[in-house]
Every structure is written in C-alpha cells, then in structure tokens.
Simulated assay, not measured.
Amino acid sequence: MNCKLVTSTLALGLMLAAPAVAQEKFSLMLNWKAGGDHAPLYYALSQGWFNDAGVDLEIIQGNGSGAAATALSVNQVDMAIIDMPTALQFKGQGSDILGVFVAYNDSANGIYWKKSSGIESVADLPGHKLGAPASDAARQIWGPIAEAIDIDPNSVEWVNIQPTAKVAALQSGAIDATTHMYSVHFIYEDVFGDDLGFALLRDNGLNPYGLTYFTNGTVAAGKTELVRSVVHVTQKAFEFCLTTPEPCSHALSSAVSMKAADAARELEYASKVIPGEGNTLPIGAFNPERVAQDYKLVSEAFEITAFDPATAFTNDFIDTSISYPKQ
C-alpha cells in the first residue's frame, strides 16, 4: 500500500476522532422551571452551539429568582437567571453577582383579576385579596408597584399561596387578583375568557429590567472566556428564536416534556417583552441609565447597603454585532 495513502488515512481518522473544541463544564440555573423565555437555550443545546463554543452546559431547573440568586452567591452554579430587582437586592446585601445578559428588556410582570370580582382596573384593587408566594418577584416590590398605579400599598390583603396555585385560587374566588409573568398570559385567557382583567406593569408606570443572566465575580474572573462564549451563543439563539420561533419551541417541548402548543404560546408571549419597546441596543446589552433607575427603585423598597449600580452589570461580554430583529 502507498505510504502516503496510509499516512493520509491515519491523519484523517485522527481528525475525525478528535473533538473540534475541548469542552469545559458550565452550569446555569434557571429562574424557574423551563418556560418560553428559555427556549433559545434549549434550541442552542439541540443544535450543538454551546459544544461548538467549547461549553459543556448544564441547565438546572430553578425555584424562583431568590433561590437562583442564593445559589449563585455561594458558588453552587456558574450563572443564574434572576429578576433584576431581586438581583439588585442581593447585590445590596453583599452578594458579588454581576449581570451579563438581559433576557427581558421590559418587565414581564402583570396583575391578573376576574372582572366579576368588581375589579375593572388596577385602581379598583384596594379592598381586595391578592395571592402570591411571599417570595414572588412582583410581591417583593409591591410598594413601588402600588405607588406606580397610585394606590395605598396597605389597601390590599396579601394571601400566601403556592406558585402553581395562582390560577386555581383566582378561579375559586380564594383570591381576587394575582401577579404572574406575561409568558403564561394565554393560560389566563383560556381559563377566564371575557372575565379576565389584566394590567402589564410596563404599561402602568413601572418597567424595571426583568429576567437577567447573572454570574459572579469569581466566575467572571476565573472563567472569562467561558462566560463570553455562553453569552455569545445565547445572543445568537435569541436572535434566531425571535425570527424563527417554531424550531425553538419544539426544542423546549422536547427537552422538558412540555406540550408543544404550550411551549409555542409561551415563547410567543415572552417574545413580546424580550426585545423591549424602543430598545436599539444589541441583544442582551444593558442601558446604564435603566440600571440606575432600577437601583433607585430597589434602594427605596428594601434595606440595602448603597453601591454604585454600574458595578452590578457589564456589557463586556456582549457581541455588539448581534441585534434584535426589527419589530
């Protein structure tokens, strides 16, 4: 046999056997169980984009922004998705966390009620029962919310319920209103129909950043290139899924055993608040002025140690060439 042919065949075999990029483990905790806004992550995983970038990504299901912030603060995970006000509260309590990617440029928090309860608008909430877990993101900033909608924060009665019991509690009349993320808006539409009343906070005077990807100082310094790769792949995935949602919702439903129709509708509604109204920044990038406004909101609502809001985020990991699709 020709020696050159043998050598070439062996070289080709070695090239095919060797991985294109050495992969390093990296863990990401979700803010909650996987939903529509996480579809880009699962699509990128299904396409091998993270692997191609050298990232062996582990996605960990979450149990609320507070739990995700706690896990990140004590180095249990490399990155976590956290509601921005919650993250700033943790930062003000000494956590060394750092925002690297904005998922929801507009607040996805909304207030839901039944019109048959006598509530026609948020102005009618006083005297009624609102239900949510004590750790609910919107409940945590109820003071600023009440101020924005011009009601006394003490004029409503809060009832503690489980996160998964909101719709049932509202349906049964155990509560008159609740707070929820806009990505599941369709569930309320299906259950309550014409009896549904709703207000999105961004349309009622309060629009902090919503879900945001955070890392911490240790990871940012020690795994800099991994963080950069995760952010770049996530940007690319968000860009794709905002223009081509079907394969992304399919990847989500396949990965977490969610009904395909539910995954598609969750992504549809999440996509309405992900880009942000009038936002011209690259995908995932922070506006320093908005972060400063969010810091003011949090510092007035909670007892925190003052800090420079510019230290709570960085745009250094953002690929500025990746933009939101034109709306």
Rank of each mutant, 00 (worst) to 15 (best):
G62I: 02
V74G: 01
N109Y: 08
D96H: 10
G48Q: 08
A108R: 08
G131M: 04
G118D: 12
N105Y: 05
N105E: 08
D106A: 10
N51R: 04
A132T: 04
N109S: 07
I60W: 11
Y43P: 04
D78H: 13
A103E: 14
A80C: 13
G127D: 09
Y112V: 04
G99L: 07
V55G: 02
T70I: 09
V77C: 03
T86A: 10
M84F: 11
F90E: 10
N63Q: 13
N109Q: 13
S95N: 03
A44D: 03
A123T: 13
L88C: 07
D78Q: 13
S107K: 04
S117H: 11
A69V: 03
D136L: 00
A80N: 09
Q47I: 03
A87N: 03
T70V: 09
V122S: 10
N105A: 05
L125H: 05
I60V: 14
G64F: 09
D124H: 12
E58R: 11
V102I: 15
P85C: 06
V55P: 05
S117A: 14
S107Q: 03
A69N: 05
G92W: 08
A103R: 00
A108E: 14
D106I: 01
N75L: 13
K91L: 12
K114E: 03
P133Y: 04
Q89N: 14
I111A: 07
D136Y: 14
T70H: 07
K91W: 01
N109C: 04
G131E: 08
I60F: 07
E120Y: 02
G48M: 09
Q61D: 14
I111S: 02
G99T: 10
A44T: 06
V102M: 10
A53Q: 02
N63M: 11
V122I: 15
G92D: 06
N51V: 02
G66K: 11
D124S: 15
G66R: 11
S117W: 00
A123L: 06
G64N: 09
D106W: 05
H128L: 05
E120V: 03
K114M: 14
A67Y: 04
D136Q: 15
A71I: 04
A134G: 01
V74H: 04
I82Q: 09
K129T: 05
M79R: 02
G94H: 01
W113N: 08
G131F: 08
A108I: 08
I111E: 01
I119H: 12
P126I: 13
I82L: 09
S107N: 12
S121E: 06
N105V: 00
K115S: 04
L98I: 06
A134C: 00
D78S: 14
Y104H: 15
F90M: 09
A71K: 08
I97S: 04
D56H: 01
Q93M: 14
V77R: 05
D83V: 12
L88W: 10
G131Q: 01
G110K: 11
E120W: 03
Y43I: 02
